[in-house]
Amino acid sequence: MLSRAARHRVRRCGRGAGVRVGQRRSPRGPHRRFEIAGGLAQLLPEAGAADDVIFDAAAAKTTDEITHAREATRIAELGYARLVEIARPGVSEDDLAVELRWYTRTLGAEDNFLLLCAGARNPAVAPSNGRVMQKGDILVAEITPSYRGQLAQICRTATLGKANAELKHKYDLLVRAMNAGIGGARPGVAMSAVCRAINAVLEAEGYGEYCHPPHIRRRGHGLGFGSIRPGDVSLDNDTMLTEGMVFMIHPNQHLPETGYLLCGEPVLLTADGAEPLTRWRSALFEIDL
């Protein structure tokens, strides 16, 4: 609830024409709670959205943010190494996720937006639950540590035991799609072009239908500060890429033969193109049982 003092201050600030108030409108990410937004809407009925003023200014990362993104990426990769050490049949998804979150905290990550699940065929990557992993499961994980407020993410897929030839072949397809996206990202290029570069690899293999909703929504997204800029790696995002942007390129994909697979890197856009922040690129990992 807005206190009386707060309501008084808001009224004073809003006096006059052309009031613009920062509002957050996105289907994902933090929303203004009704108890606050409702109060503001009553006090300032003429207020309009002014998100772009803030988010455009933050589109390119500062030197510190880039340093933090590199460190968050390093933590993510160490976290993944730990994940494949401890993921075993008989361990629950929840226990694995809790252990991984704690481990990345020991490395300095104050938080970890960690999606992790396993199954013979995953419909999506989802928050963990109490399901106990079994031999033959495909384990998918989005490991997203936050280091000093800056997120970085890696998208990885591992199998509990040997992977079959079809799975390896399909994962290789995703890696090629990811590399096409990374190769296509450079200053002056629209984000939609990066998405088209990724989709082209999949379309060439007959998966054109799977490049659109309901199968996938996006091929990547911003990282940090609400992950708003440069927005999603999607066909409807014509944001022009500029140096200093940090975002995910992840052709995470549901394929009819395998279910959902994860493959993705955080990249920094430099004058020469997209530089992955990771030391080791996505590769299907077979956990030796």
């Binding site: 929840d94 996720a97 809790v98 937006f113 960690l114 928050p127 109490g130 936050s146």
Partner: peptide, 11 residues
């Protein structure tokens, strides 16, 4: 609070 809840919550 964490950005995503991780931990056993099964009924």
């Amino acid at each position: 609070n964490p950005t995503l809840l991780v931990g056993p919550s099964d009924w």
